Amino acid sequence: MEFGIRALREDDAERVAEMAAALSAHEGMPPPPFGSADVILYGFGENKRFDGIVAETESGLIGYTLFIDSFNIGVGTPGIHMLDLYVEDRARGTGAGRALMGAVAAETIARGGSWIVWQSLPTNKVAIDFYTHIGSRQYQAADFELSGPTLAEMAAESPWR
């Protein structure tokens, strides 16, 4: 399968949102509240919060990755936090995932970074096998989240704003 890699464009928004839902389904999760309007709102313009790269064939997009700039105090350098990486089932094994990772690696270096981090559900064997195959190492860190009412309570207690 022939494919190309390029930067995310606004007209990719609907397809990327569909693939984000497919990624959630693959992981056994409900669809995320992340639609095409969110891709446009947060991927472009004054509210931009992430960057993206897509893989496409003549017939359309087959994969995507979204990422943000970050910094690692322990390493003392900037890097990239990859939010999502997804390649459709029909395109797995074609090199599209590796090409997307390579594009993120190149972007990391271009931005003066020296690392990429991301999360994967421990049950996502396809992803873990791919990440191991390309030479990444798995951290032993624990992920935490503060959200919803607890987030609001913490914010309300803070003298910050």
Rank of each mutant, 00 (worst) to 15 (best):
T123N: 09
E153I: 04
Y42F: 13
G28Q: 10
L41H: 10
R6N: 14
R111I: 06
H133L: 10
T94N: 03
G74S: 07
G63N: 08
G113S: 06
D84M: 03
M82C: 07
A156H: 11
V117H: 09
I80N: 00
A99P: 04
I5R: 09
G112Q: 06
G4T: 15
Y86R: 04
T132P: 06
A142K: 06
A37S: 14
K48R: 15
V126W: 08
I53W: 01
T132F: 06
G60Q: 10
A7M: 12
I53E: 01
I116F: 07
M101V: 08
D11C: 14
E2N: 03
W118C: 09
F44I: 03
E88F: 01
G102E: 02
A22K: 12
I40D: 01
D84T: 12
A152N: 12
T94W: 04
G28T: 09
S136Y: 07
R111D: 05
E10H: 11
E27Q: 15
G4Y: 09
A96Y: 01
E56V: 06
Y86E: 03
I62R: 00
G148H: 11
P159I: 05
V104C: 02
S24D: 14
S114Y: 03
A106G: 14
Q138A: 08
D84A: 04
G113Y: 00
